[in-house]
Design a protein around this nucleic acid. Sequence first.
DNA 1: CTAGGGTTAG
Length: 527
Amino acid sequence: MIRAYSRSNPPIEGFLLYQDMRHRGLHADRLSLSFVIKCFVRVSSLMGGVQVHARILRDGHQSDSLLLTNLMDLYSLCEKGNEACKVFDEIPQRDTVAWNVLISCFIRNHRTRDVLGLFDAMVNGEFGCEPDDVTCLLLLQACANLGALEFGEKVHCYIQEHGYGDAMNLCNSLVAMYSRCGCLDKAYGVFKSMRNKNVVTWTAMISGLAMNGRGREAIEAFREMQRVGVLPDYQTFTGVLSACSHCRAGELDRAYQVIMSMEVKPDSTIWRTLLGACRIHRHVTLGERVVGHLIELKAQEAGDYVLLLNIYSSVGNWEKVTELRKYMKEKGIQTTAGCSSIQLNGEIHEFVVDDVSHPRKEEIYDMLNEINKQLKIAGYVVEITSELHNLGAKEKTYVLSYHSEKLAIAFGVLATPPGTTIRVAKNLRICVDCHNFAKFLSGVYNRDLIIRDRTRTSFSLQCNDQSISTGHTNGLNLGLFGDIWLKSYWDEVGRFCEMGKAVTSISQGQKGETRSKQLLCETSSPV
DNA sequence: CTAGGGTTAG
């Protein structure tokens, strides 16, 4: 019965059942306890975790790997990474699943880089168990987050050598990983080789094309998906929308109207995509309105306010910047620290702004200062509107000079032979100034740069003596995409909305909570 | 009396 509750129904009732059981003097065995933990996992209840933890110890289950891994997962879900690690230390026999839970915990709790070392140790037999398909799945996620292409390729080899090569979930992750590392040809290679493709496969490819600035192909892939009869869901929709928002020339008000007129209720991702476009096009009033919608959905994140700050500063409205900063401070809104990473000889190097933790920090700062000097000669000017604090121009220039991505790029220039492509991954959105910096650097230092951030990958490629870059709309890039398809874009969105209705009616006929249903049928009553 | 098990794709 508790198991039944752990799978459906309001999960907390599973715990009530368990308490009732104890009141009746019945002893809960380990499996009942594991289902109780599952109930708490479903609601991410830290309090529940603490209670059941105590119960595990009191009932003498302190060496039960099933219960302990279960509990770890709960702590890790509640962002209590340290607690989860402590529990892990208590597991006497750690099998692959236990390690997998630890890996998943690290990925969730911002220790992604450590995961790569764990994989290596596991492959080398240091843990007495081998990586399985789930380990590989987790590792691909980690590589995608870090933009760690080399390591991702290593995992790919492992997958093939161990007979997991046909697994659909792994192949889907491979498509995503290669896309997010800016390697579209490899992503497409995996995609093409797959015999069966589901909505996840197609969405990975569409989003991959979108985030790499290949809007037209993203839409072509979207059409092809429909042609072969795969139904899109809300993530597909977001991919298509982002394909267009990174390179469309304005028309945001129309986008807003289309979203508002959708039969289905738009979710936070869609609003956020539009908000990103508002920043690119400096559309203040619409940006404010979109944030209003996010607040209404109770879905606003620190990053959304930062985007709004960006919009205000890009039009020089410092009063609004100050006002919003004050509001954020009052509300205790914490922003995520920006972090950039670069892979070198199998090792990941991470940087935060003004980072001084790297062993080669002196060389890196010298290199960065030298680069700044060279780029200035080439005509690079710091884009001070990228700095969101109300400082003087001089201070702004200084603060912007040591952004984490610049440190990572300087390290790349320093530590790789001339001509090597530099790949950097960033956890947040890259700022306009750093983008310009990369573009100039590409020309001056004759390097191809591929920078992946939270929403897309931008390329600064050195071709025909002319530095070009994509992925960012600052007036220079639009030509790359051509614009014929942009004109037909809104017709496409209109058709998509029609299809949204179709998906709604299909989802309503299905049991279970599919995510498409969550988006498309938020107004309908639960099954 | 037994059975019920932990990680996991865009």
